[in-house]
């Protein structure tokens, strides 16, 4: 009997809403999200409350250990810069670089990999050719060659460069999984229903690879923050006296034994950032995966 039963407005959720509900059920994930929000708040608001600016040098207190009395809670650097202000300044950049690079490189990997794997044939060969080419190109060398072009421009160019050279391996993995997914019955069912290719990739292929993509993105956040340091040596992007978390850590490690505060706080903030992102990633992964216990109603 096909009697119509009127559903209440909220009874049928779309997948997006269901994933949100499942995500917020996960305490650690919510904690991670809160933590990341706090880090953003700290990075962008706290410097305004602090009495020292990041580029302000306090010649009375050079290499001072953390102390409440002189107002340098995190201590000072060799030339009297306030470590707290520097760390926050670095955090501003590193947060944005880390998250944006992870987002773009994983996103690019997902779209290129899934398209190559799903469409197969000529598209696959062309995309694979590009991926292989990028893989064999020495990316650091290329960036070094290109660096004069970007000198003096915004450090956001970094994000583009880091993302552009970091997606290929993931894309190859995604392609492999997509190739096996396209043979599955639910994808064939969607094709026979007349669902357009673009929607099949976004609705069926990518959600089924989401666990891998989320892990990849999570790892990329930490990776991007650190490899940004490496690129700084090549003389562009975040340049001294400006700082990033990576450059703070790199400089601070030289005197790690004698003046641990120089890198310890930056290091701990980095760990905290990566930890929060991991929690969020775990929560998202469980929210996407119906088999995971994390997102189920208790």
């Amino acid at each position: 009997m096909a009697t119509k039963v009127k559903l209440e407005q909220d009874e049928t959720f779309s997948r997006g809403k269901l994933i949100r509900v499942r995500f917020f059920r996960n305490k650690l994930a919510v904690f991670g999200l809160f933590g990341l929000a706090m880090l953003f708040f700290l990075a962008f608001v706290a410097p305004h409350l602090d009495k020292f600016k990041w580029d302000q040098l306090d010649f009375d207190n050079m290499l001072s250990p953390p102390s409440l009395s002189n107002g340098h809670w995190f201590g000072t650097s060799q030339i009297g810069g306030d470590t707290f202000a520097l760390t926050m300044r670095g955090l501003q950049k590193s947060l944005i670089i880390g998250l944006l690079v992870a987002f773009f490189s994983t996103g690019l990997a997902a779209i290129v990999g899934a398209s190559a794997g799903y469409l197969a044939g000529r598209t696959d060969r062309a995309l694979m050719w590009v991926i292989d080419l990028l893989l064999v190109l020495p990316s650091f060398l290329l960036i070094a060659v290109l660096s004069p072009l970007y000198r003096g421009k915004t450090w956001l160019v970094f994000v583009v460069l880091l993302a552009a050279f970091g997606w290929m391996i993931t894309a190859r993995i995604v392609r492999g999984i997509s190739m096996s997914l396209r043979e599955r019955d639910f994808v064939r069912a969607a094709i026979y229903m007349g669902v357009p290719t673009r929607l099949i990739i976004f609705r069926h292929i990518l959600p089924n690879i989401s666990s891998l993509l989320i892990i990849d993105a999570t790892l990329n956040v930490g990776g991007a923050i650190l490899s940004e340091t490496g690129l700084s040596y090549l003389g562009f992007g975040v340049q001294p006296p400006d700082v990033s978390l990576g450059s703070l850590i790199a400089e601070g490690t030289n005197d790690a034994m004698a003046y641990p505060w120089l890198f310890l706080f930056a290091g701990m903030i980095l760990i905290l950032t990566v930890l929060c992102v991991s929690f969020i990633g775990d929560g998202l992964r469980d929210a996407f995966d119906p088999g995971a216990t994390g997102g189920q109603a208790k």
Binding site: D185, F186, Y192, V195, R203, H204, P207
Partner: peptide
């Protein structure tokens, strides 16, 4: 023209709530 496959474990997307799976042709 629609199809029902042999294996219901493979023919439904494990990551799509069944409501959305059934609505997929309607949406299309």
């Amino acid at each position: 023209l629609q199809i029902v496959f042999q294996d219901p474990f493979a023919s439904l997307d494990a990551r799509l709530p069944i409501g959305e799976a059934i609505c997929e042709p309607l949406k299309t």
